[in-house]
Amino acid sequence: MASAALPLAANWGALLEGDARPTFYLLAGLGAGLFFFFKGFRTWRHMRLIQDTPTSRIRSMALGRVELYGQAVEKAELTAPLTGAACVYYRYQIEEEVQGNKHRSWRTVDSGSSSAWPFYLEDDTGRVAVDPREATLELPPDYREINPDLTGALGNFLAERGVDTHSFFVFRKKLRFTEWHISPGEHVYVLGVAQERGGMVHERRVRIAEKLAALKADPEAMAHLDSDGDGSVSAEEWDVARRLIVAEVERAGFDDRVVVGKGEHSGTPFYISDRDEKAVVKEHLWKARASVFGGAVLSLFCLGGLLHRVGILWG
């Protein structure tokens, strides 16, 4: 390919002779082909990572890269904007049909997601918070419709978002609405990085320190701690009290001090899917194959076209 660049450069003028558009299309095709070729290998590496990472149980998962499979549980009450469905996560896209020179295509006019809201993942051993920011979500659309009824909640939502539904006078634009969401109770696959949230750790420490200080200041409670009745609270007796307080603080909502999300500088991809591991691997495999072979064929085709235009091939 590199050696092909020399005659291409020498005959650059021939590429731009007459109608230059085919040359640009061929160059764009060559670039896209190379992009898909390399992207295919990246997808394949991720597929192997998914295959090679055993699924952890939530109660015993370690910090670092984890693969989890469990049921989604709401942390905040969310409603999907297009369908009004209760969910733990949503993403939506509103597109408008636009007429190009030769073809019609869809242009996004509004999109959004609830990625700022974490949700819980629960298996039969425990639960953990999942922060979906920067996740690659592999969800099939739950709702896709062209020009649905825009009265009611959907119309109000569009007005709220400032989406104009009219093209000219009373004529309506052709709009396509797509929504993806994860419902409470749905089984979810997650590959990400489990990490302690710095803020939560500090908040937990402060809460424990406050409770211990309050205990020390209460003579009656301190007397109750003196289980052997020797008139003083020994180190062991104090340790029991401290442990009880730690357990109480953790029960009171600090169970999400560990969160699964996109790890910083970890190199681990962050996937959320509503399918199981097998289906995720299968999808990655065909995507990788299609990308590598499709990218190579597209590149070769475009390269052949460029060489033909400069008269080197089939000239």
Partner: peptide, 12 residues
Amino acid sequence: MSWIILAVFAFT
């Protein structure tokens, strides 16, 4: 044609 063969080899 040799260019294409070369490109196929390069991709491989």
